[in-house]
């Protein structure tokens, strides 16, 4: 695995792990009750590793993703990102972490409608400390994802796949330690999803991007180095899915997983 192209200057605190999560719990009030969304989730992500997170709806994937991305704070537990404990950080510190250490790609792209592709990719750079060569850096990212000729197009002038590629370029432009993707192919057709998969594979293989992808897509899971299964707020043992409570939904999920990774 090649790590240097995206992080030539990196002096990580933990040379092995990008992410270390220990006993993460998340409790949320729902009406008059309290629900444990996550129940003691622990895992590591090595540098340059591609992790797929799978699980049925309501398993806590979005919550875990939110905590990992610095968008949410766990009720208890610890999470180290590139050696930095982000568990009890205040919002402004988390914002800095999100800008410099994390790139996020969403299912519905979430590009800013009034800006061109180039400008969308530039947006994170204007919040960062390093304001040098913003235009060039953004242009290089667009070229990396194969959209150099679409840099002046607005999101409504791009296809779904192209929008997602712009989103990926935006997520990578700050050279994050971790790229998180939440159902990145959820709004794409199968052909476009395949193209997206190729791109992720290229980013992972050629650039050594550390990927954490939440997905229902088996083909993405198949490309990952490791698959984490989350069921009812708990991770199954590596590569072994936890048996869910028997109900029709669980059986359908098991069928979809097709015997899983």
């Amino acid at each position: 695995m090649q790590h240097t192209q995206l992080h030539p200057e990196a002096h990580p605190a933990d040379p092995v792990h990008t992410v270390t999560a220990r006993d993460l719990t998340r409790r949320l009030p729902v009406g008059e009750d309290t629900v444990d969304i996550l129940k003691g989730v622990s895992f590591d992500i090595r540098r340059g590793e591609w992790i797929a997170l799978m699980g049925p709806s309501g398993s806590g994937k979005s919550t875990l993703l939110g905590i990992l991305a610095g968008l949410d704070t766990p009720t208890s537990g610890q999470i180290l990102l590139d050696g930095i404990d982000i568990t009890r950080m205040r919002e402004r510190e988390l914002a800095r972490i999100r800008n410099r250490k994390i790139g996020i790609v969403f299912q519905s792209f979430n590009l800013i409608a009034g800006l061109t592709a180039q400008e969308n990719v530039e947006v994170p750079l204007y919040a960062g400390a390093d304001g040098q060569n913003i235009s060039e850096r953004a242009g290089a990212m667009l070229e990396l994802v194969g959209l150099a000729d679409r840099r002046h197009h607005r999101p409504n002038q791009l296809s779904g796949g192209q929008q997602q590629r712009v989103a990926i370029a935006r997520a990578l432009v700050t050279r994050p330690a971790l790229l998180i993707a939440d159902e990145p192919t959820g709004n794409l057709d199968s052909a476009t999803s395949a193209q997206m998969l190729d791109l992720f594979a290229r980013l992972h293989t050629e650039l050594g991007v550390t990927l954490f992808v939440a997905t229902h897509d088996q083909s993405i899971a198949a490309c990952a180095d490791r698959v984490l299964h989350l069921v009812d707020g708990q991770l199954a043992a590596p590569e072994e899915p936890i048996q869910p409570m028997p109900n029709a939904a669980s059986e359908q999920v098991a069928a979809l997983d097709g015997g899983g990774a």
Binding site: A95, R96, N99, N110, I112, P124, A127
Partner: peptide, 16 residues
């Protein structure tokens, strides 16, 4: 709201 949330995920702080 979504646009604002997106900016925040990209690291924009409240003062930004």
């Amino acid at each position: 709201t979504l646009e604002i949330a997106t900016l925040k995920t990209l690291g924009y702080r409240r003062r930004d």
